[in-house]
């Protein structure tokens, strides 16, 4: 029989597995909303991963690690923004290159640091690992079922949900956010309505990169228990790109979506061994492909994809 405790354990594990996806997805939504398909999520997450890990290693402070991961992610997004917004280079090519560059950079620094520690092991200090443990709030976490369901995750999860809610509020409830969305739909019209196209593109892309960076820090710091491992992002950035479609370009939906995809990621450990593991690994991509297809078959009405996604804007060619 499947017990309540088992279901609870599964949900808690799914949320944890979905947390890095949440950051990547929300970050990518920010960028895609202004019409810039950034395929560099995996790379930005990798850069954030190594920066966050290094900052945590040096300071032993979780907040400091997150801030540095955010800044590093932003910095890598800046490369993308300069080249695609200002220099109007092909977004797909730059994004892919950013991914290759970012992963290479992170692994390179990681190998270099492992060589320098002298222990063949680049490891976070114990007091930092303590900070990353699942929270345990007195009374609240002790409530049966609900306490476990709501108050038993690590700090990253709560930061991620807060960021997702904030981005949702920004994009759909503030004037600046609606303007940003207008840019993704029709930059020429937005420009004519005196929206500062370039400025808001930069702001959104950089914020998106920063958010991805924190997701990367989760991958490097939490997933492997505080030990640096090469390729620690391991494709989660690509799943995030897929998840944007599943979440219909809505940050609030991304919360739900990332936990669903998190559940898909861990499902293989809970299922009988008859079903091949490849099937579970493939599932997020198959589901995304189906969602993408279904949205396009339904036509413009059902599709939330920004109209000018992937197209650069050159003012003199309106």
């Amino acid at each position: 029989m499947i017990s309540l405790a088992f279901i609870l354990k599964f949900i808690v594990a799914a949320v944890g597995a979905g947390t890095p996806l949440l950051f990547g997805t929300v970050g990518e939504i920010m960028s895609e909303k202004v019409g810039h398909l950034n395929l560099g999520v995996e790379g930005m997450m990798s850069v954030g991963a190594v920066a966050g890990f290094a900052a945590g290693y040096a300071t032993g402070n979780l907040a400091c690690a997150m801030v540095f991961a955010f800044l590093a992610g932003m910095l890598s997004a800046l490369i993308y923004a300069v080249l695609t917004v200002s220099f109007m280079a092909n977004q797909n090519v730059i994004g892919l290159t950013l991914t290759i560059f970012g992963i290479g950079f992170a692994n390179f620094v990681g190998v270099y640091m492992i060589g320098r520690t002298g222990t063949n092991n680049w490891q976070l200090p114990a007091n930092l690992i303590e900070q990353m443990k699942n929270v345990d709030i007195p009374f609240l976490s002790d409530i049966p079922v609900l306490g476990k369901l709501l108050f038993s995750y690590d700090p990253f999860t709560y930061v991620g949900i807060a960021i997702a809610l904030a981005c949702g509020w920004y994009l759909f409830r503030t004037k600046a956010g609606l303007n940003a969305q207008a840019i993704g739909e029709n930059p020429a019209a937005a420009d004519a309505a005196s929206i500062r196209v370039t400025k808001w593109k930069y702001i959104n892309i950089l914020l998106g990169g920063g958010i991805c960076g924190i997701g990367g820090a989760y991958c490097s710091m939490v997933i492997n228990g505080g030990v640096w491992i090469s390729d620690c992002v391991g494709g989660l950035g690509w799943i995030s790109v897929a998840l944007v479609i599943f979440a219909a370009w809505k940050p609030q939906m991304a919360i739900l979506g990332s936990f669903v995809f998190g559940a898909l990621r861990i499902l293989k450990y809970y299922m009988p061994a008859v079903i091949p593991i490849a099937f579970f690994n493939m599932l997020p991509f198959v589901i995304t492909a189906i969602v993408l297809l279904a949205a396009s078959i339904r036509g413009a009405k059902g599709s939330h994809i920004p109209e000018n996604l992937g197209n650069n804007y050159f003012r003199e060619e309106r």
């Binding site: 950013l98 560059f101 950079f105």
Partner: peptide, 12 residues
């Protein structure tokens, strides 16, 4: 003893 990843960095 430098990692082969420097190829990726340079390509980028």
């Amino acid at each position: 003893g430098l990692s082969t990843d420097c190829a990726d960095i340079l390509q980028g």
